[in-house]
Amino acid sequence: MPFHKFIRRGKFVLTPALILPLAGCAKGSPWWIFDPKGVGAHASFIYMMIDVGVMLAIVGATALAIVWFMWKYRKGSNRGAYDGKWAHSNTLEVAFWGIPIIAVGFLAWAVSVNGSFAVNPYNPTAITKHLKPNGDPIDIDVIATDWQWLFIYPQYHHIAIANKLVIPAHTPVFFRLTSTAVTTDFFVPQLVGMIDVMPGMRTKDALMSDHLGTYQGIAADYCGAGMSWMLFKTHVVRKTDFDRWTQMMESNPDTMDYQQFNRFAEPYINVHDKTPAWGHVEPGLFDHVMLEVMNGKKWPLPMFMTENMFHYLKIQAAEHRA
């Protein structure tokens, strides 16, 4: 990178300290974990605050005690009485075991048990408890490849889009996820926590957001050289806009069957942030892919693929995939 940019950034060094207190209210906050916009992410945030509150009380008190003892009992300061034999006290030791036991007991119930059910990816009660009988939840099939995301909407004529996710606000969205080659994590920090996406297997996740906006999605688990570029923007839009979008998508003449998917799934680093779309993909593609992988289908990587990224980009262009 140009060196002057490195220098110029220096003046921003102090700004984060100023941003922190504003995290809650700032628009487009960079503090994604503190600025949840999805039901699940929000529940997680609340549990985090409870947990930190309890733990900080104990840890903070201990830290203060240590500092106080350091001040009081420094040799030569003559502030505290020295007792070179004192090494045991039943009262204190009961307290030392008792305090953490009580704290862990409380946290176990308050955040561990409750939280695990509230944001259980397969059935997050934070979302499913409030399901309306005719709420029309949306199903999305997610297939992770090396290194792209494919999102298929089975209820909407099997439209599909890669590296971009569009969902309506106020609507529960249920995901089924699998992967072609290796394991990664589906993660939209402001909307929903991580869930593993594994080849030959199906996991589930659920998401609901009441906040229109665009949120960064990330492949959170290391899945190879292209991981850093394996990003997707998640657009939370009005229901009407979503319907308009699906209609537009359905009119897209491009289609994809398993053979074409096979080529799509070959190793590809999405450096140029491409978001190709298909008006229709083969129904059951998700299960088909899973079955093929279970039967041993692989998409092997070439050796030294990213030793020189410029070299790789040339190959990508030559294959008309750039």
């Binding site: 992410a41 733990m55 840890v59 939280g115 926590g193 959170a220």
Partner: peptide, 27 residues
Amino acid sequence: ALFLLLIGGLTGMMLAIPAINYMVHNS
């Protein structure tokens, strides 16, 4: 070392909660 242990313990107890872990695991 004691102070580092305190911070590590505090954050470990955060990671131990699945609801929190989903948000910061692999981060």
